[in-house]
């Protein structure tokens, strides 16, 4: 049986889809079989971030409505062969995802994969609650910024109330992933520090992903940032987070030490 992860945040634009693709690719690179599932019906984007937008034939809603079989809708990644995508549909009908349909698809996926990663839509509506319904682990993606932290707090409350685990009296394993973190601004006192966010939300930390141009670059190419340039700071942060999800103990690195400019490099070489 697969571990089911839901990537959620409440607020939009904090990096849920980037995180789903990056963690999915990083886990698949270790040889595990992974499927990433886009729950954002009407506004699908995971296909684009994964570079599979031209290969979408059938989608999640087609499978639920019986117009396609699950294997027909799954798209195998071209770079990592144990990585699959189940795209969302572009239909405007918000009720296209039904509880029973989602239960069936997630049930089928979890019998065939090691990891099922659900990319939640923003907000706290039906799509978001359906995406978190089966979660064993919830990755709460948060930016070090007031509105994101508040929405994450709200999502944590919903995770404790509206998931199958909650209904069974268990709790979802919630982990905080701090994204778009700028250690220089945090050190200057102009951005919430990691400790601040951890203290306010009181969640265990899964990782810190620094603000970086590499994220946009990878998305331009349609490659998950964790495998686009493995040496980049966000790639390393996501690979470490994936290892932590697999139960490894990985020291928490504070990423993005100031990059040395030309003079810095020169001086360092000279020293």
């Amino acid at each position: 049986m697969a571990k089911i992860i839901t990537v959620t945040s409440g607020k939009g634009g904090v990096g849920k889809t980037t995180t789903t693709a990056a963690i999915g690719a990083a886990l698949a690179r270790t040889g595990d079989s992974v499927v990433v599932v886009d729950f954002d019906v009407g506004l699908r984007n995971l296909d684009l971030i994964m570079g599979a937008e031209r290969r979408v034939v059938y989608d999640f809603v087609n499978v639920i409505q019986g117009d396609a079989r699950l294997p027909q809708a799954l798209i195998r990644d071209k770079r990592v062969e144990t990585l699959f995508l189940l795209p969302a549909s572009q239909t405007r009908d918000k009720d296209a995802l039904t509880e029973e349909g989602v239960d069936k698809v997630i049930g089928d996926l979890s019998r065939h994969f090691d990891w099922v990663i659900c990319d939640s839509p923003a907000g706290i509506e039906r799509g978001a609650t359906l995406a978190m319904r089966h979660a064993d682990i919830a990755i709460v993606v948060t930016n070090p910024e007031v509105s994101s932290v508040r929405d994450s707090d709200r999502i944590v409350g919903i995770l404790d109330a509206k998931t199958l685990k909650a209904e069974r009296g268990e709790t979802v394993d919630k982990r905080l992933l701090l994204t778009r973190y700028d250690p220089i601004r945090a050190a200057r006192g102009d951005m919430l520090k990691t400790e601040d966010v951890l203290e306010i939300l009181s969640l265990p930390l899964l990782g810190i992903v620094p603000e970086s141009h590499d994220v946009l670059r990878a998305s331009n190419f349609g490659v998950p940032v964790s495998i686009h340039d493995p040496e980049s700071a966000p790639a390393r942060a996501y690979v470490d987070a994936a290892r932590r999800l697999k139960g490894e103990t990985v020291a928490m690195e504070i990423p993005g030490k100031p990059r040395l400019g030309f003079f810095g490099k020169f001086l360092r070489r000279a020293a």
Binding site: D153, D196, I200
Partner: peptide
């Protein structure tokens, strides 16, 4: 003055309110 302590304080006050009406 740095702005992060402001953010931190405002969030702590706000969330302690919002959590009381959890549910």
């Amino acid at each position: 003055a740095s702005s992060a302590p402001q953010a931190r304080e405002r969030l702590q006050i706000l969330l302690s309110h919002e959590r009381q009406v959890v549910g």
